[in-house]
Simulated scan of single mutants.
Amino acid sequence: MQDPVELSSDLVTYAARLVRAVRREHHLPAGVRILSLLDEHGALGVSALAEVDRSSQPSMSTAVRDLAAQGWVSKGAHPT
């Protein structure tokens, strides 16, 4: 039986390869990734969303603005 740590490492490697293959095959726009992150994490501010996505805050601001213009997300003031 394989070591659980080794198995989990293999799983992460294969999952990353699968994600890259799907992106190459389907040419999904960045907005789909952002919507997926919002679905997974709930409402987030632009800075928090950029952190989760490992992207820059200015890039995320542009992407969120584009999604809002298309009606895919809504922007509002942070509750605090």
Score class of each variant (00 low, 15 high):
1 M>Q: 08
2 Q>D: 02
2 Q>R: 03
3 D>G: 15
3 D>Y: 06
6 E>M: 01
7 L>E: 02
8 S>P: 02
8 S>N: 07
9 S>N: 13
10 D>M: 04
10 D>Q: 03
11 L>P: 03
13 T>Y: 05
14 Y>I: 01
16 A>F: 11
17 R>A: 05
18 L>H: 06
18 L>A: 14
19 V>M: 13
20 R>F: 07
21 A>G: 01
22 V>R: 15
23 R>W: 10
23 R>P: 01
25 E>G: 04
25 E>V: 10
25 E>K: 15
26 H>E: 12
26 H>S: 10
28 L>C: 06
28 L>N: 11
28 L>P: 00
29 P>A: 15
29 P>H: 11
29 P>V: 12
30 A>G: 14
30 A>S: 14
31 G>V: 03
31 G>K: 00
32 V>G: 07
33 R>D: 12
33 R>F: 15
34 I>D: 01
34 I>T: 14
34 I>P: 03
36 S>G: 12
36 S>A: 14
38 L>V: 02
38 L>M: 00
40 E>P: 02
40 E>Q: 06
40 E>S: 05
41 H>T: 02
41 H>N: 09
42 G>S: 02
42 G>A: 07
43 A>L: 08
43 A>H: 13
43 A>E: 12
44 L>H: 00
44 L>N: 00
44 L>K: 03
45 G>C: 04
46 V>E: 02
47 S>A: 15
47 S>W: 09
48 A>H: 11
48 A>E: 06
49 L>Y: 02
50 A>K: 01
50 A>P: 08
51 E>P: 05
51 E>V: 00
51 E>T: 05
52 V>K: 09
53 D>H: 15
53 D>G: 08
54 R>E: 04
54 R>N: 10
55 S>G: 13
55 S>M: 13
56 S>N: 12
57 Q>Y: 04
58 P>K: 05
59 S>Y: 09
59 S>H: 14
60 M>R: 01
61 S>D: 15
63 A>H: 10
66 D>E: 14
67 L>G: 09
68 A>N: 07
68 A>P: 04
69 A>Y: 13
70 Q>F: 06
70 Q>Y: 07
71 G>Y: 08
71 G>K: 03
71 G>S: 06
71 G>H: 02
71 G>L: 04
72 W>Q: 10
73 V>P: 10
75 K>Y: 14
75 K>M: 15
76 G>N: 07
76 G>Q: 11
77 A>M: 07
77 A>D: 09
77 A>F: 08
78 H>T: 07
78 H>L: 08
79 P>R: 01
79 P>Q: 03
79 P>I: 01
80 T>F: 02
